[in-house]
Each structure stands twice: as structure tokens, then as C-alpha cells.
Amino acid sequence: MVQEHGARVIELGDLSSLCGTSRMAEIRRIVSSLKSGEEALIVTSDPDTWYSLANLGEELGYEVIESTRSQGRYSVRIRIK
């Protein structure tokens, strides 16, 4: 398991070729695999997926600690509520 600053790193890839329901389902699947209080750094190459990750915390039960982008790499650090 890859970790970065104590958070599990999850490579989400580019979900822009999946339908919206699948993107939500994929994000939900990742979130449900994490334990309460656990932190994860989710990385994607798709800015739209990144935006979804950074703004769906309320709906999907996580807190966004940090959201960054750099040279085509988009990441969101979350903590499960």
C-alpha cells in the first residue's frame, strides 16, 4: 500500500470516459473501502473528476483536507467522517 504523509494513496485514473453514475459509483466505492477517521490521497488525471471529489464530501461522508493540482496531476486529500 502506497502512503503519502500518512495517507493512503489511491490512483483513480481518468474517469471521463465513464458515465456519471459510474463516476459517482466509483468514488463511493473508494470512500466505502476506507474506515472512519482514515485519510486518503486520491489522485486523478481528470480535472472534472477532481472537481467532483473536492465537492462531494457532504454527500459521500468525507471531509476535504486539501485539494491541489499540478502539471496534469489532480489530488484531493480526504478524511472519512
Partner: peptide
Amino acid sequence: YDPVSAYNIG
């Protein structure tokens, strides 16, 4: 296709 993860959040 799914406004919940798109339009609704921005």
C-alpha cells in the same frame, strides 16, 4: 447524464 456529480456541484 448525472447532474448530482456535475451541474449540481458547480
